[in-house]
């Protein structure tokens, strides 16, 4: 069982098809106007496409054009929506906000409150229980919104840029809360931040101008984007390894030093290091005695990228100026050294 989505909307030039396997989270990645929000609106039942079919766990939620027309109202779709604005009901306490879903589905008041307490605990928001939403910070409110969406026990969770309106300093806490609740859940996450996709999604669907341009397992798409568009958008250097307690040890024995973001990985546990291609410097010879991370690698391709050149190797890419590329006399096939400061590298627990 899973979520199947197919819809065409001519006047928004949207033609999208994708599916979410049961218990997985799919990230819809794309720039503003790519059609991500339209997809969510159709799935949630706020917009009817010209043609399309949407089904969840074998139940048809929407069918337009072809077959009997079906258009279930939003409250009957078992799809919860979490947007960037927490939209907690201002007249209800935090606890009653979270209890709203189960209460609306006919559970008793007592059972609904128990369910609310469980989910507030899950997102680390028990202490706010009695407060009114107006007394919460943006990040706290969003965590409560997550708990509220989960307490409704939806078959599918739609997350529309849930981190966009949250302060950078509290984003990691919220991201962790989402990671916990999304485990084993069927969910669609709309984002333009590849990092959110990396940490929260199993699969990625990349949208551009209303079309799916690429899809696949998250790390594969982010690390080795096949389309130039996905590369521009995602284009993140990702390195998997085990955490030694101080640095990340890759399979080939190379060590990577970086800043741990979010909860610290366990020693010997899986972790991932990420850095942006723009922060990579390229040398013909490895600089000696530098505090930088350095990776010796062979150039596979050189792509123009506006004023920059993207230097690609098997696993990594670097963006450098055309002038620097000419000075270094770079051509595919030669061996170079990619160097990146430890402060530019983020390490995440997996």
């Amino acid at each position: 069982m899973s979520f199947e989505f197919a819809a065409r909307l001519v006047d928004r030039r949207l033609d999208v098809q994708f599916s979410v396997p049961d218990g997985e989270t799919v990230a819809l990645l794309g720039e503003n106007g790519a059609g991500k929000s339209t997809v969510l609106a159709i799935a949630a039942g706020h917009l009817v496409p010209d043609t399309g079919q949407v089904s969840l766990d074998g139940r048809v939620l929407l069918r337009v054009g072809g077959g009997n027309r079906v258009d279930l109202p939003p409250h009957d779709r078992e799809i919860a929506l979490l947007s960037q604005d927490p939209l907690l009901f201002p007249h209800l306490s935090v606890r009653d906000n979270v209890a709203f879903g189960p209460r609306s589905r006919g559970r008793s008041r007592r059972a609904s409150l128990t369910e609310a307490d469980r989910w507030l605990d899950e997102v680390g928001a028990v202490e706010f229980s009695a407060r009114k939403p107006s007394a919460l910070s943006g990040g706290e409110a969003q965590r409560v919104a997550v708990a509220r969406a989960m307490a409704a026990d939806p078959r599918l969770l739609l997350l529309d840029e849930p981190m966009a309106a949250v302060d950078v300093s509290v984003a990691p806490v919220l991201r962790q809360a989402l990671r916990r609740v999304l485990a084993g859940r069927t969910a669609v996450l709309v984002t333009h931040d590849p990092l959110d996709a990396l940490l929260l999604a199993d699969r990625v669907v990349v949208l551009d101008h209303g079309q799916v341009v690429e899809e696949g397992p998250t790390r594969e798409v982010l690390a080795r984007p096949r389309s130039a568009f996905a590369a521009d958008l995602a284009g993140l250097n990702l390195l998997n390894g085990t955490w030694s307690g101080e640095h990340l040890r890759l399979a080939d024995g190379t060590t990577v030093t970086g800043l741990v973001t979010g909860p610290s990985p366990e020693s010997g546990g899986q972790a991932v290091a990420t850095f942006r291609p723009g922060s990579v410097a390229v040398y013909r010879d490895a600089p000696a005695g530098s505090p930088r991370n350095s990776f010796t690698t062979r150039i596979t391709a050189l792509d123009p990228l506006g004023d920059l050149i993207r230097v690609r190797s098997k696993h990594l890419s670097a963006h450098i100026t055309t002038q620097a590329a000419a000075d270094l006399d770079l051509v595919p096939g030669i061996e170079v050294s990619f160097s990146v400061k430890a402060t530019e590298v983020s390490v995440y627990r997996l």
Binding site: A44, H46, P73, P74, H75, E78, I79, A80, L81, S83, D85, L87, F89, P90, H91, F100, G101, S104, R105, R148, A149, A152, P154, L158
Partner: peptide
């Protein structure tokens, strides 16, 4: 209607939304 939209996505039927969200908000 933003709150009503959220309430519906939490599974509340129109009457529930009207009674528990719409009316209290416009009180």
């Amino acid at each position: 209607q933003r709150y009503e939209v959220v309430a519906a996505s939490l599974g509340a039927k129109p009457t529930t939304v009207f009674r528990r969200i719409t009316l209290p908000l416009v009180m």
